[in-house]
Design a protein around this nucleic acid. Structure first.
Lengths: 190, 190
DNA sequence: AGAAGATCGTTTGGGCCCGCACGAGTTCGC
DNA sequence: GCGAACTCGTGCGGGCCCAAACGATCTTCT
């Protein structure tokens, strides 16, 4: 798509390979462009604003979520940040080591861990966020106000669709042909 | 966004934290929804179609690109797949170990490495791609044909904008305040 | 011809990412 | 009460991810 081949050449190559199979080209383009845009955006942020603070995209998002909510349980942070709780543990460890975030325990439920920014973390976010938002504006600067709103709304409905129907869909697919376990992942002890 | 807080509550929390700072909310929503949608999509694919073949999203994209073009130089594969060449080296190593892809050398330029699918790899893709495309259709099934096309087109223009203006923008930002080197990454030998 | 420079894929270091197993802690059912 | 069932965050294994350094190869300039 973005490489040394034109869109047309790519289309032709796909046709050549899959000529007889009926294909949903429109869906293919939409999905691949979502992914491509997300990667390009992440790339832009990590090599501009975030580089100055030596933060990855994910680390920034975690800081942002905790900052906005002041104090939050880890499972909710993971969900809002869109990462698994196992990943969050590692990211928090990194941020804790850099003195940007703190862990605290819950008053009544001993299983929970609460996250909150340190003063240093708050100061970082206060300075960083305006610059971050300025880049967000840069990313969509070529779009009209209408295009921008429509884009956000359409993507929102894609996300909602996956949230509402995704589980069921995966269930149905698994029923047809059960998936083997993942090659990686922790092994039982014995 | 997708968590236990409503959109409205999130908006209010942001206002509370940043009430006095002028913000581009529209850009913020568009960018965060792009990223959120991409993550949800990747998640759906990895836990449905790709799980059956024990492939990650990236591994699949690499196979797809090589499959479509039959034979391709690694640098172009990396670009089309949207990953760095260093990452590609590792992914190819994994796929090579599973007998799905082969490396070959270029006839006249000894620096280049050509990639091509093995028979096993081709067979895998022939069976897998229709299922993959069916999930792409599922992802956007709630959108009308118009919405779908507009979405793809709008995202395309975002990607093009970043490709055309991103370098210059980062250059300008770096001029204001030069970025420190990344904390990670290889160190000079001595 | 030969040195200087560009470009290729690979290596390295640090970090993110997931799924699943696990132990600590809580709630439910009786 | 008190064990069974659930839920929490963390440990672990395998894999992706990037920037920068690097050696091998090719090109360009003199």
């Amino acid at each position: 798509m973005t490489g040394h081949h034109t869109l047309q050449e790519t289309e032709q190559a796909i046709q050549r390979r899959l000529g007889d199979v009926p294909l949903r080209h429109d869906a293919m383009m939409a999905v691949s462009n979502i992914y491509r845009a997300a990667a390009a955006i992440r790339q832009h942020f990590e090599s501009s604003v975030l580089r100055g603070a030596d933060l990855t995209w994910t680390a920034f998002v975690v800081l942002w979520v905790v900052w906005i909510w002041d104090e939050m349980e880890t499972r909710h942070v993971a969900e809002e940040a869109g990462i698994s709780k196992g990943t969050l543990t590692g990211v928090v460890k990194t941020l804790e080591g850099r003195g940007l975030i703190e862990r605290g325990s819950h008053a009544t439920d001993g299983r929970l861990v609460l996250l909150r920014l340190t003063d240093k973390g708050q100061e970082l976010m206060r300075g960083l966020f305006p610059a971050f938002n300025a880049e967000e504006a840069f990313v969509v600067e070529r779009l009209s106000g209408d295009e921008n709103r429509t884009l956000a709304q359409t993507l929102r409905s894609v996300v909602e669709h996956l949230e509402e129907a995704g589980d069921e869909r995966r269930e149905a697919l698994r029923a047809e042909s059960p998936f083997p376990p993942r090659r990686s992942g922790r092994r039982p002890r014995s």
